[in-house]
C-alpha cells in the first residue's frame, strides 16, 4: 500500500514539474520569437524592433547590423554602444568587431573623399574596437583581417626599431601621416 507521504510527494512532483514545463515552454516560445526577429533582421528586413530595451542582446545586435547595412550609422552606433557590457564574451567580441566595422567603413569613405581629418579618428576608433574584439577572442580571423586593413589605412606612428620598442613610449606619438591604402609595390 502506498503511504500517504508518497502520494503527496507524487502530487507535488507532478505540480512542480508541470509548472517548470510550462515555464520552459514559455521561454522556448520567447526564444523562437527572438530568433524569428534575428532572421528577419539578418535577411535585411527594415522593421523597427518594438520593446527594444527588453529585447535579448542578440536581437539588438541583429537590429544594429541591419542599420549598419542601411548606412544608418548613428542608430547602429547607439545600439552597439548599448551592448558593450554584454556579459557573454563571444557576443561582446562580435559587438566590438561590428563596432570596428562601423568606424572603419566610415573612415574608408572619408579617406576616399579626401576628408583625412575626419578619417583619422574614425580609423583610430576602429583599430581600438578590433583590438578589444581580439583581446576577447584571439582566433577572430575577420577581426584580425580588418584590423590589418585599418592599420594599412592608418599605420601606427611608431616604427619597429630599438628606440621605439621601449615600453610605453606611444604617448608621445603624433599623427604624422595621411591615411590611405598602398596602391602597389614600391
Amino acid at each position: 500500500m502506498i503511504r500517504p507521504l508518497t502520494h503527496k510527494l507524487l502530487i507535488g512532483v507532478l505540480l512542480i514539474s508541470g509548472g517548470v514545463m510550462a515555464a520552459q515552454l514559455g521561454a522556448l516560445l520567447s526564444i523562437a520569437h527572438s530568433n524569428g526577429l534575428i532572421a528577419d533582421f539578418n535577411a535585411g528586413h527594415t522593421n523597427k524592433l518594438s520593446g527594444f530595451g527588453t529585447a535579448a542582446p542578440e536581437v539588438r545586435l541583429a537590429q544594429a547590423v541591419s542599420w549598419q547595412k542601411q548606412r544608418r550609422y548613428e542608430e547602429a552606433l547607439a545600439c552597439l554602444n548599448g551592448l558593450l557590457d554584454t556579459p557573454d564574451p563571444a557576443l561582446q567580441a562580435t559587438v566590438r568587431y561590428n563596432l570596428g566595422n562601423l568606424y572603419l567603413a566610415q573612415a574608408v569613405a572619408k579617406t576616399e573623399a579626401a576628408a583625412f581629418n575626419d578619417a583619422i579618428p574614425l580609423a583610430s576608433l576602429a583599430k581600438q574596437a578590433y583590438r578589444q574584439a581580439l583581446a576577447l577572442d584571439s582566433h577572430y580571423w575577420d577581426a584580425k583581417y580588418n584590423l590589418e586593413v585599418a592599420m594599412r589605412l592608418l599605420p601606427e606612428m611608431a616604427r619597429i626599431n630599438s628606440e621605439d620598442d621601449r615600453p610605453f613610449n606611444q604617448t608621445s606619438q603624433l599623427w604624422t601621416t595621411v591615411p590611405g591604402f598602398p596602391r602597389g609595390l614600391p
Binding site: Q24, A27, L28, I31, A32, S34, N35, I38, A39, F41, N42, A56, E58, V59, L61, A62, V65, Q68, K69, A90, L91, T94, Y97, N98, N101, L104, A105, V108, D142, Y145, N146, V149
Partner: peptide, 15 residues
C-alpha cells in the same frame, strides 16, 4: 574589409 558578423541565434538546447 570583411563584412559584419551577423547576430547569432539564441541557443535553446538547454531549454
Amino acid at each position: 574589409m570583411r563584412p559584419d558578423t551577423p547576430a547569432p541565434f539564441l541557443d535553446n538546447t538547454v531549454l
